[in-house]
Design a binder for these strands. Sequence first.
RNA 1: GGUGAUGUAGCUCAGUUGGUCAGAGCGGCGGACUCAUAACCCGCAGGUCGGUGGUUCAAUUCCACCCAUCACCA
Length: 550
Amino acid sequence: MPEKSRKILVSNALPYANGSIHMGHLVEYLQGNIWIRFQKLRGHQCTYICASDVHGTPVMLKAREMGLSPEDLTERVTAEFLRDFSDFGIEFDNYYTTHSPENEVLVGEIFETLRASGDIYTKTIEQAYDVQESMFLPDRFVRGTCPRCGTSDQYGDACENCGATYTPADLIDPISVLSGSTPVKRDSEHYFFRLSRYEQRLRDWMQSANLEKSVVAKLEEWFEAGLQDWDISRDAPYFGFRIPGTNDKYFYVWLDAPVGYAASFKNLCARRDDLDFDEYWRPGHETELYHFIGKDIMYFHTLFWPAVLQGAGFRTPTSVFAHGFLTVNGQKMSKSRGTFIKARTYLDHLHPAHLRYYYAAKLGPTIEDLDLNLDDFAARVNSDLVGKLVNIASRCAGFINKRFDGQLAAELHAPEMQARFAGAADAIADYYERREYSRAMRTVMALADEANRYIDEQKPWVMARDEQQLDTVQAVCTQGINLFRCLMIYLTPVIPGVAEDARSFLQEQDWHWDAAGTPLLGTTISPFRPLLTRVEPEQVRNMVEQSKQS
RNA sequence: GGUGAUGUAGCUCAGUUGGUCAGAGCGGCGGACUCAUAACCCGCAGGUCGGUGGUUCAAUUCCACCCAUCACCA
């Protein structure tokens, strides 16, 4: 059923530019990328944006440590990000940086609008200050003894041992992580956003956004606790945008980071005639806006961000899609166990399609965590992708190529079966749309089982010995190839590279989602070459070994 | 500590608005086949559905508490 063409803008969360992309990040980018590829395959105008999140204290300090400017550091890191993304098949329509002129203008505009409507006020707060380094210290940069349980060397915001939360001022014997000196308390004037004013509007937005149940539960919890105003400023020195009208105040990184979505899009609009900024970012248009995020940053995306957008006269997101965290072999990623696996390390040993499929096979729309079990990974990928799916083509192509010069039959052998495969398109599309990737994968693999069973029952290898039955052999194998083709189209969003090779093997120019409804008959196909190889245990072992060392 | 989510066969996960709901895939075991990247096909497997109480004629599915894991506490 052809849908009306939609105009959709999608973002992934902006990776923070002080480290490398790892397997945990990839859950998010692959989830978003699969959705985008699906929408594009369906013929919708779908724009995919992202950027490096470059502001804030950690980047500033890391650059200082490396003897670089923050700009140079984040440029280097971004170049690395882009190579990793690209090699995993994650291609953005625009990948930008939050340290851009567009972003500075937008943040300034938003701030002025909010201030004009009375949503911004200043208040003096007391904060830890490192006299030796001449700077205010974020909570994470103060360590000391937990005032409740007495555990030493705890961060300034919470105790890892007893879970208590507090402020750095509560710590016993606090020290600055930067200089080792004892921080002093010092007053500073900060800018606050009146989030408390937005409760009703946020509740309304929450209703319209159709958020996942568990996300709503979390939001309800926050509403219950009462919305607190948000401190949106930081003191110099800070890498960020200076607040207009001040000399030493900067916007907190979490204010300008989400605005970076809009800025990245604005940057893209400048070179694309078919995209209009206002159509996607001002109220009153039919466009859709979605953010894929991790469950750890829901607060920013479901409270601050929609509130800021509303207050500043922008449209709010159509919805926000939150996902869970990655564990490896059932535990948090760990360097010593070799399970802190960087994207690049993975690519040194394994094919991106393996991971793309494995994540898809386990991803749903909820904020539940996802486990990358390395043994299961190899077994699942080998069985599903190689043993079931690619096998269908592999076992049929030989006959077509050797016995019929690569020519497919003019008619299908089992049209009712073909109709069932084609008929699954709507259900599978619905699963993709709702981000029920695991259900989509299960559906596809159940069909792959059927296809293998069909070939097994027909036994073309037996018929091939009898000249009289050659037509049937051709028809059966043509049928098998078409079942394979149908499933490959369904999997295009997940394993685009493999799908492309399959398409070229079938000598087709282009695939649209609806192509699954029209069988390929009478044409010629190329010699079959393995579309994907198995995951060898040794590759996984080597990857883990390398992760321990880096 | 508070709050939210999760806890089902060796592994990864479905499922139940309470009563054929104890399931799938993988692994394992047995068999068959040889077209296929030792792939594919057929059959078998019996896990107190995290623990303890409670509600009910009946709970894995509802409630309470506890334990474990993940996250958040701005």
